[in-house]
């Protein structure tokens, strides 16, 4: 069910004058203000957990691996379907029917062998999520349904791990950055809940944009770059060309994060 891969840090370029493993590979980002050698080493020491290896998971896994996150664990229970391929460029038509985790692991290890990749071919449960999040610094929600998102978000709060949440449908998408403790949480963002729905239509490039923004927010959060956006949601409408960052109001009756609501100890 679970497969892991030992990373080969320093395998692409070795240690250069900066002392950073894989210096040549990361040369184009080492000069970025706020990143540099210290930031690169910080990324290398980070463990990120990603739920879903689909339309959002593809850019998130790819760009977190490309950036040099040291350890990336992901979980997905699906096989590759032909209808995935308008947005999920980790897979090819020849791989239809194969397990996503198996295909993605091989592709991601070839792309970024410095990363310690681990894939779990199973549906997410609270117990699995807790196990994956042990010693993780960040959770990233690339799921395709609300019940899976809720499980990851609940486990992340229990582990006090911040969460980058993303979702797409049609020409629209959203990215939320949620704290590991305190308000707001995923249930504040969706006070009415989100019922199950048939797989929505989606333009592949929209998943690419939203997933890439999720990767950016993940890296910003890990490196404490730029203004703090924890507790905010970015609403993207590619058709109208709008990008709106909004603060997420904390619910006074939130069963997860409101101090006014008594909760049993877990």
């Amino acid at each position: 069910m679970a497969a892991s891969g030992g990373g080969r840090r320093g395998g692409a370029g070795g240690r250069g004058r900066s002392g950073v493993a894989g210096e040549e590979r990361y040369a184009r980002q080492l000069a970025l203000p706020g990143l540099g050698v210290i930031g690169q080493e910080r990324l290398a020491q980070t463990h990120v957990v990603v739920l879903g290896a689909g339309g959002l998971g593809f850019p998130v896994l790819t760009y977190l691996g490309a950036a040099g996150v040291g350890r990336i664990s992901f979980i997905d229970a699906d096989a590759v379907e032909l209808s995935n391929l308008n947005r999920q460029a980790l897979y090819t038509p020849a791989e239809v029917g194969q397990r996503k985790v198996s295909v993605a692991l091989e592709r991601l290890r070839n792309f970024a062998p410095e990363v310690n990749w681990a894939g779990t071919d199973a549906a997410i449960t609270l117990e699995r999520a807790r196990g994956l999040l042990a010693n993780a610094q960040l959770a990233v929600d690339c799921a395709d349904n609300f019940s899976a998102r809720r499980i990851l978000a609940e486990a992340a709060r229990q582990a006090r791990v911040p969460l980058v949440h993303g979702a797409v449908a049609g020409f629209e998408g959203q990215v939320a950055v949620l704290p590991g403790e305190g308000p707001p949480c995923l249930l504040c963002l969706y006070p009415e809940g989100q019922g199950s729905q048939v797989p929505p239509p989606v333009l592949g490039a929209v998943a690419g944009v939203v997933g890439s923004l999720m990767a950016c927010e993940a890296i910003r959060l890990l490196l404490a770059l730029g203004p703090r956006r924890t507790g905010s949601v970015l609403l993207v409408d590619v058709e109208r060309g709008t990008f709106d960052w909004l603060a997420i109001p904390a619910r006074s009756d939130c069963p997860w994060c409101s101090p006014a609501v008594a909760r049993p100890r877990s």
């Binding site: 993303g166 629209e172 989100q194 709106d244 960052w245 603060a247």
Partner: peptide, 28 residues
């Protein structure tokens, strides 16, 4: 949302206000 403020369905709009609506977006 109204302006840069998220509101819920209990929100009472004012005259002339524009409210932007978002459909359920849960795909991945």
């Amino acid at each position: 949302f109204v302006g840069n403020r998220l509101v819920n369905l209990a929100y009472v709009p004012s005259d002339g206000e524009t409210i932007t609506l978002r459909p359920p977006v849960q795909g991945g």
